[in-house]
């Protein structure tokens, strides 16, 4: 499971990127916990898309947990169906 910092964004995206790659390597299901996250930025959204694709290709799943309403709206804007 990856618990996101409340101020997740481009400044912390490298660590998040590395963490996802790492988790996907060793688990069939990766849970990303959005609780406490008030908003995301474009870098977070595209990383979610890319990890979804990578998981699917490997027959694994990424699950998003406790995504606040506004963040869902933001994801929709980026074409993420949730």
């Amino acid at each position: 499971m990856i618990k996101l910092d409340s101020d997740i964004g481009v400044k912390k995206i490298k660590e998040f990127h590395a963490a996802i790659i790492d988790e996907l390597r060793s688990n069939d299901e990766v849970l990303i916990d959005f609780s406490g996250v008030e908003r995301i930025d474009c870098s977070v959204a595209q990383l979610i898309i890319a990890s979804g694709r990578a998981a699917r290709a490997a027959g694994k799943t990424i699950k998003l947990k406790s995504v606040p309403r506004f963040v869902k709206y933001q994801m929709q804007i980026c074409g993420i169906k949730i």
Binding site: L24, Q46, S51, A54, I77, C78, G79
Partner: peptide, 22 residues
Amino acid sequence: TKNVDREQLPALDAMNPERCYL
């Protein structure tokens, strides 16, 4: 209408997360 172009987005391990692809 909304169309998000995600074509430019590379694979997860090939992407530079600090670049914009959308």
